[in-house]
């Protein structure tokens, strides 16, 4: 089963440093080689927001006011159980420090 993990920064999230990059690269490499990590990436803070209401579609360019709550990165993983997904998210959080992650199961394709 697949899970999508999204990470958000909070006020106390430290700025990434060299050590974090090295550890993260090793983690990503290991998980990819193990066949667990299917896709991952960081997300730009700016973006385009589309809101539809009735026949009306509003398109707004970011950045947005609540930038701190925007998703900063994601990882799509293939695991055997929700607990495995949570354990991976736990390892990820240990590397990046303060902040929050959300783990959701992905259905389909």
């Amino acid at each position: 089963m697949r899970y999508l993990m999204t990470a958000r920064s909070t006020e106390t999230t430290p700025a990434p440093d060299e050590k974090l990059f090295t550890e993260m690269a090793a983690f990503v490499e290991e998980m990819t080689a193990a066949g667990i990590l299917l896709a991952t990436g960081g997300l730009a803070p700016e973006g385009v927001r589309l809101v539809s209401r009735g026949d009306e579609l509003t398109v707004t360019d970011g950045p947005f006011a609540e930038a701190k709550e925007a998703v900063a990165g994601f990882a799509l993983v293939e695991v055997g159980s929700k607990e495995e997904a949570v354990e991976l998210a736990r390892r990820f959080r240990r590397i990046v420090g303060d902040g929050e992650s959300i783990v959701q199961q992905v259905f389909g394709p």
Binding site: G80, S81, E83, E84, V86, E87, L88
Partner: peptide, 9 residues
């Protein structure tokens, strides 16, 4: 939880 760690390790 223990078993999830176990499967990975």
């Amino acid at each position: 939880m223990v078993s999830a760690v176990w499967k990975l390790e």
